[in-house]
């Protein structure tokens, strides 16, 4: 076999791809390292490792996890979805309004909130996949529009009266010692992971993101796949909104943009974990933990509040830069092979 190509850059001479392993699990190591650091620092240590703090640290991540998982589906197909935060915010308003203003039974109110997210996702999917509207503009446009509608309905006030305790219990109480909010968010994330990594649909979704034209020429209905990615995104973001209502005990009156950026950061960071170059649910879980541990630790060390915002922005930029570098390396390998 004379023309066997050069081994892939990730494979070392010994056959064990150490470099690839280091690259894939760098963020996991970083999370553990940060955790140990904040646990040992005298300024934060005792409080940081207290059960109350750890419980809050984890419980607070249920809603961001769902919103980030929602954004994984469109990004797998190659599109950023800037609407996930706004969809979650408006779904929480829909459910809260159904409960408080229309006295709807709880299961129906929850279903309405999720359905609202699903419909928004369907509309976006139709616009982007079938009408060919630029995804950046349509998702940002829908986000802005929903933010305005929320303000118009709530007048900038929280809807907090009339939310039944069955719902708020999910946000604050435990099942067998595990916060319920984490059980619900974890179950949804597990289902999303299964769809993305264990089914033909998931494989096709990533294939569309990798090369839409090639996937079309394999006989796959690319538009329907893209549409379903946005339906999944809207539905999961809707679930996130209902969970947000349960956690806060009231519907937010903000436009959801404050929830969008952590989700975007997490999804982008997920592309440099485990499956380098593509977003994934396990990657999102690690990225969310990374952000949560850092923000909590920094707060306890006594850094001023603006540091959090700077950290979020810096993490977003770093995630983009790393993802770009990983992409560049893949392209360079391709050029080498073509030349």
């Amino acid at each position: 076999m004379t023309d066997s190509p050069a081994p892939s850059p990730a494979t070392s001479q010994s056959g064990i791809p150490w470099r690839s392993i280091a690259e894939r699990y760098a963020l996991v190591v970083l999370v553990v390292g940060l955790f140990v650091l904040f646990a040992l620092l005298p300024a934060s240590g005792a409080v940081f490792t207290s059960p109350q703090n750890l419980r809050a640290l984890v419980s607070n991540q249920g809603v961001p996890l769902l919103i980030a998982v929602a954004a994984v589906f469109p990004l797998a197909a190659g599109y950023f979805d800037f609407s996930v935060g706004a969809v979650a915010a408006s779904s929480s308003v829909v459910t809260a309004a159904a409960l408080a203003d229309f006295s709807t039974p709880l299961p129906i109110a929850v279903a309405l909130g999720v359905l609202f997210g699903m419909i928004t996702g369907t509309v976006l999917g139709l616009l982007i996949a079938y009408a060919g509207v630029n995804p950046f503009i349509s998702t940002l446009g829908v986000a802005t529009l929903l933010g305005g509608v929320i303000f118009a309905y709530t007048g900038g006030l929280r809807i907090s009266a009339g939310i039944p305790t069955e719902l708020t219990d999910i946000g604050s109480r435990d099942w067998l010692g595990v916060p319920r909010v984490i059980v619900v968010a974890g179950a949804v994330a597990l289902a999303a992971w299964w769809i993305l990594s264990q089914t033909v649909f998931g494989r096709r979704l990533y294939a569309v993101g990798s090369n839409a034209r090639a996937t079309h020429l394999l006989g796959v209905n690319v538009r329907r796949t893209q549409l379903l990615a946005f339906v999944a995104s809207g539905t999961i973001a809707g679930l996130g909104g209902v969970l947000l209502l349960a956690r806060n005990g009231g519907a937010t009156s903000d436009n959801g943009m404050m929830m969008l950026f952590p989700a975007l950061t997490a999804v982008l960071l997920s592309t440099i974990v485990i499956h380098v170059g593509r977003p994934s649910v396990p990657g999102v879980v690690i990225a969310i933990l990374f952000i949560a541990v850092t923000v909590s630790g920094l707060t306890l060390v006594g850094t001023p509040p603006w540091v959090n915002q700077v950290f979020n922005g810096a993490a977003l930029l770093l995630a983009v830069a790393f993802a770009r570098l990983a992409g560049l390396r893949a392209t360079r390998g391709r050029k080498k092979a073509a030349g």
Binding site: M1, D3, S4, P5, A6, P7, S8, T11, A330, G333, R334, A337, A338
Partner: peptide
């Protein structure tokens, strides 16, 4: 002809 089935397609020669 490829070093392994797990290498990226781009690492192969055009043929």
């Amino acid at each position: 002809r490829a070093p392994a089935a797990s290498v990226p397609l781009a690492a192969l020669s055009g043929g």
